[in-house]
Amino acid sequence: MKTLLLSWLSSLLLLNHPHSPNQPVQAQLILYREKEFISGLGKAFPFKINDKKTGKLSPNHYIQLPLAPGRIKIEFYNDYFTDSRPLWIQVESGQTYYVKAVVEVDFWSSMMLMAPMPAQQALPELRRMKPEAAHASPQPE
């Protein structure tokens, strides 16, 4: 009985520290864009997370964002893109998600392809990339 009580108390403590049960641990999103031909001339494209304008991402750059757990939608939007292919991810608290974005251009079409990447593949790719300077903080619409 004593052990049960102790474990109950400790679980309460663990839940309360450092986050309250109402504020679950946030997840991390690392969104990165593949290097392109003369990346320096590449335009930074804006993206939305859950339909909220969040920032811009240039080629050969990455951006690190906190995410609330749940189902999230990442979408790049720009007149340059003829097609939109949003990415949906089920986000769990405390996890880090790596998402790679690649501009795919054909004769009449252009779109941003995105895919979640495993950490062991994403980390070597990220090592050569630069962090995106501004736009890191979420902006209201």
């Binding site: 991810i89 089920q90 790679k100 690649v102 795919e104 392809l113 995105m114 895919a115 979640p116």
Partner: peptide
């Protein structure tokens, strides 16, 4: 979920 279906060609 995109996690399972999406890969970059």
């Amino acid at each position: 979920d995109s996690t399972t279906n999406f890969t970059i060609p």
